[in-house]
Design a binder for these strands. Structure first.
Lengths: 135, 135
DNA sequence: CTACGACTTGGAGTAGACTCCAAGTCAAGA
DNA sequence: TCTTGACTTGGAGTCTACTCCAAGTCGTAG
């Protein structure tokens, strides 16, 4: 069961432009073509695409995914490398989380300072202050 | 106490290029110049810069910051608008956090599946699987 | 057969926040 | 005075992940 680019795009939930883009950057191999030169996506192409989408949802960049795909195609699947990539990504996500948490805490602090009415603004004052040691 | 662009950059921890960039996009007013046409940064410029850095550290984009600065310069300080911006930002940070948390949970799950040795890779298998219902 | 939409290509544009460059000028120490 | 380094300008390039465009071709319903 093969699909046109538009069909495949709908199937996996992206646009045909994105599909062509992935092909252009070598994330997808050039798919088969029909007599008229149009792309035909087979099940294995869709599987690869779903792989990409899933990895992306886990925070992997297209660069990362390129590498994961390469590892996947290697007959001697290098479990260790994959694990390392996953761990690296988890670590960076953890860092990001901490950063966001800190921002959030700060912002909440500022919001609590602020009555939300009146003519002075504690938030701006706080941001403007040269020494801000909120902890 | 005034500073050259390089001095100011070091003082606030950015590069002169970034300083000129902020000026170019109108985030900073054109600073005073000396006889030779070079930029002179006064204390109020540095204060503004520190404001920018602090707001940035809280997750505000330069666009957001532009608005915060505008509000700050408005004599009728619109506390409400600032509060709204801060709340909006906090909400979007919360969303981001949840997303990252989910990715993390997923990744941790995958990592736990993976022995880290051997010739098969549960992580890749999982990503490749067409039906992945990890919850 | 015709019309229309889906497809083809190469290439340009987008957003955000810088970063780098070339060619020229200014400032300050030896 | 000479040299060196910091500075000036306008403008181009970077990164990621697309997104859009124009001009032309293919496929199919009517």
């Amino acid at each position: 069961m093969s699909q046109s680019i538009g069909g495949a795009a709908i199937t996996v939930g992206i646009t045909s432009d994105t599909l062509r883009y992935y092909e252009k950057i070598g994330l997808l191999p050039r798919p088969a073509r029909n007599a008229g030169g149009r792309r035909i996506y087979r099940e294995k192409d869709l599987t690869r695409l779903r792989f990409i989408k899933r990895a992306q949802a886990l925070g992997f960049s297209l660069q990362d995914i390129r590498q994961l795909l390469r590892l996947r195609e290697n007959p001697i699947k290098c479990s260790k490398a994959v694990r390392a990539l996953a761990q690296e990504k988890r670590d960076s996500l953890l860092l990001q989380m901490h950063e966001i948490e800190n921002m959030q805490r700060e912002l909440t602090l500022l919001l609590n300072l602020c009555p939300g009415v009146g003519d002075s603004c504690p938030i701006l004052d706080r941001l403007a202050r040269d020494e801000s040691r909120p902890t």
